[in-house]
C-alpha cells in the first residue's frame, strides 16, 4: 500500500506545482495571433472571406485553411504552412494577382467621401465636397473602394 501511496503523493505534488506555474505563465495565444497576423500582407481586403487580416489570423489559429489570401500569394501560404502544420488547404491553386494600386480620376470625382469610409487603411485623403486622391504607397490594392464609388471614377493600375 505504501508504494501506491508514495507514487500518488508524488503525482499530486507535481500536479500542484504545475497548477501554480500554470497561473503565472499565462498562455500566449494572443501573441500567436499577432505573430500569424504579421505574416499576412495586411491589405485588409477581405478576399479571404474574413473582415480583415486580424480576423483571418484568429480563424487560422482556430484551424482555418491557409491558402485563402491572394495578395499574400504562395510565400504567405508557405509561411503559414510552417507555423500551422495541421491547418488544411482549401483549394489547389491560389489566384494570385500582381500588386495593383488605386487611382482616382480627379476630373470625375464628386467628393462624396464614400470611398474614404470604405478604405480600410486610410489610403485616400480628402473631405466631403473636396477633391479626393489616393496615396499611392499607402494603398494596398484591396479594391474595397471600387463598389461604393457612385461615379465609378476609381481605376486600378500597376504601381
Amino acid at each position: 500500500m505504501i508504494d501506491v501511496g508514495t507514487i500518488l503523493g508524488l503525482v499530486l505534488l507535481v500536479c500542484a506545482l504545475l497548477a501554480i506555474a500554470q497561473r503565472r505563465l499565462a498562455a500566449g495565444d494572443d501573441a500567436f495571433v499577432k505573430a500569424i497576423a504579421s505574416e499576412l500582407p495586411q491589405t485588409q481586403c477581405a478576399q479571404c472571406g474574413y473582415p480583415g487580416c486580424r480576423p483571418y489570423a484568429e480563424a487560422l489559429v482556430g484551424g482555418a485553411a491557409i491558402d485563402l489570401c491572394p495578395p499574400g500569394g504562395e510565400a504567405t501560404v508557405q509561411k503559414l504552412a510552417e507555423l500551422l502544420p495541421h491547418n488544411p488547404r482549401a483549394s489547389a491553386g491560389l489566384a494570385t494577382s500582381p500588386a495593383m494600386v488605386a487611382r482616382i480620376d480627379e476630373a470625375r470625382c464628386i467628393g462624396c467621401y464614400l470611398c474614404i469610409e470604405a478604405c480600410p487603411v486610410d489610403a485616400i485623403v480628402g473631405a466631403p465636397k473636396y477633391m479626393h486622391t489616393v496615396l499611392r504607397d499607402a494603398c494596398t490594392g484591396c479594391e474595397l473602394c471600387l463598389p461604393p464609388c457612385p461615379v465609378d471614377c476609381i481605376v486600378m493600375e500597376r504601381p
Binding site: 504579421s38 485588409q44 487603411v121 499607402a138
Partner: peptide, 8 residues
C-alpha cells in the same frame, strides 16, 4: 504590411 496594419 506593418504600416498598413498600424493604419488599420
Amino acid at each position: 504590411a506593418a504600416a498598413a496594419g498600424n493604419r488599420f
